[in-house]
């Protein structure tokens, strides 16, 4: 190739300018490898490469043997790692070795036996020549002229209009990917009289079932035949805790939302919707493990730390005639993270 030359023929000619102490002296003189000068070293390198490839092949055979021979329920003890599934480990290690050794062999081959004279290749400016550029412009103009783009403005306008319009179709086609939100984000299954049952086993709870300091993870009891889906859980999950009534310091309008110190909040974080399940019974704080918003149960789950902006919505509760905990009413505001249509 015309623009390629060996770096070392070149270096002498360039270093002739080395009268100046800072001029480019050209590539440093080539240092030969042992394999270049000693046939024995080259032979040894060749053997090393062959051994690497050979070991890889052996490793692949070991892979096949592990695949066929090791049962799934065999575990081996490896110091530091503990007991681990033998087949997975054997398959992995043998495959890793087979692959790695092929690579190592190839690289070793390239490094020791393939030519290591650095080659110099010239760069060429990427920019096209002025004639080429002019040529393109001419062709473009001729094409546009021939098609009458400049003159036939009616065609131009209708074309632009129709292409613009047709790009709307994908947006339209995506419309049926889902229903409109309507009031879905604002409604839950909680309603007046609905019993609080434990998650996941559905036991109704009496006030006496919860001691002071107790927590219960709660879902609404559903009528026979209807079950809660994940879409329901994401709005209905509630956390119930019991404090000494005198520890509570709720806003006046929510004082009777509590039954004997038992208080219920939506468990879905008002920040990003994780389950705020982490209750510290001494400090009466609820913590969201996702982003560490901290809510103070005593004051009605007001935010005291972290990125959440709103308190957890409180569920008003009381007991029914049999003494079971029930919701006094549904949530009075949407649960979960904020959204544009949310009004408060």
């Amino acid at each position: 190739m015309s623009d390629t030359h060996s770096g070392h023929e070149n270096s002498g000619q360039q270093s002739s300018t080395a009268l100046s102490p800072l001029a480019d002296p050209g590539l440093p003189p080539h240092v030969y490898r042992r394999a270049d000068t000693e046939p024995r070293a080259a032979k040894k390198a060749e053997q090393q490469v062959a051994i690497l490839f050979g070991l890889s092949a052996a490793s692949t055979i070991a892979f096949i043997a592990s695949f066929v021979g090791i049962k799934k329920d065999v575990f081996v003890f490896v110091p530091l790692f503990g007991s681990t599934q033998a087949q997975q480990l054997a398959l992995g290690i043998t495959l890793a070795l087979s692959l790695f050794l092929i690579g190592a062999g190839a690289v070793h081959w390239a490094k020791t036996l393939m030519p290591d004279h650095e080659v110099i290749q010239d760069r060429h400016e990427l920019r096209s020549s002025d004639e080429d550029r002019q040529g393109v412009i001419d062709v473009f103009h001729e094409g546009a002229e021939a098609a009458g783009l400049g003159r036939r403005s009616l065609i131009k306008r209708t074309l632009l209009g129709s292409v613009g319009l047709v790009t709307l179709t994908p947006i339209l086609l995506l419309r049926d990917m889902g229903p409109l939100p309507r009031k879905q984000l604002e409604t839950t299954n909680w309603a007046a009289g609905r019993r609080l049952v434990t998650d996941p086993d559905g036991k109704p709870l009496k006030a006496s079932d919860l001691q002071v300091g107790a927590v219960a993870h709660i879902l609404p009891e559903m009528p026979e035949g209807s079950e809660l889906t994940l879409n329901d859980l994401v709005k209905d999950a509630v956390i119930v805790v019991r404090l000494r009534p005198e520890d509570l310091n709720l806003p006046a309008d929510r004082k009777d939302w509590v039954h004997e110190g038992i208080i219920a909040f939506s468990k879905i974080c008002s920040h990003m919707g994780c389950a705020v399940g982490l209750y510290e019974q001494q400090t009466h704080h609820l913590l969201c493990p996702c982003h560490q918003s901290t809510f103070d149960v005593e004051t009605g789950a007001q935010v005291i730390f972290g990125p959440a902006a709103r308190p957890l919505p409180q569920l008003a509760i009381t007991v029914d005639s049999e003494g079971y905990l029930i919701a006094k009413q549904g949530f009075t505001q949407p649960v979960g993270p904020s959204f544009w249509e949310r009004s408060s």
């Binding site: 997975q88 480990l89 398959l91 992995g92 290690i93 495959l95 890793a96 070795l97 087979s98 692959l99 790695f100 050794l101 092929i102 690579g103 190592a104 062999g105 190839a106 690289v107 081959w109 390239a110």
Partner: peptide, 15 residues
């Protein structure tokens, strides 16, 4: 060769 080396090291981690 380096492709095989990357594959081998990733497989080692997977193992």
């Amino acid at each position: 060769g380096f492709f095989f080396i990357v594959f081998g090291i990733t497989t080692f981690l997977g193992a």
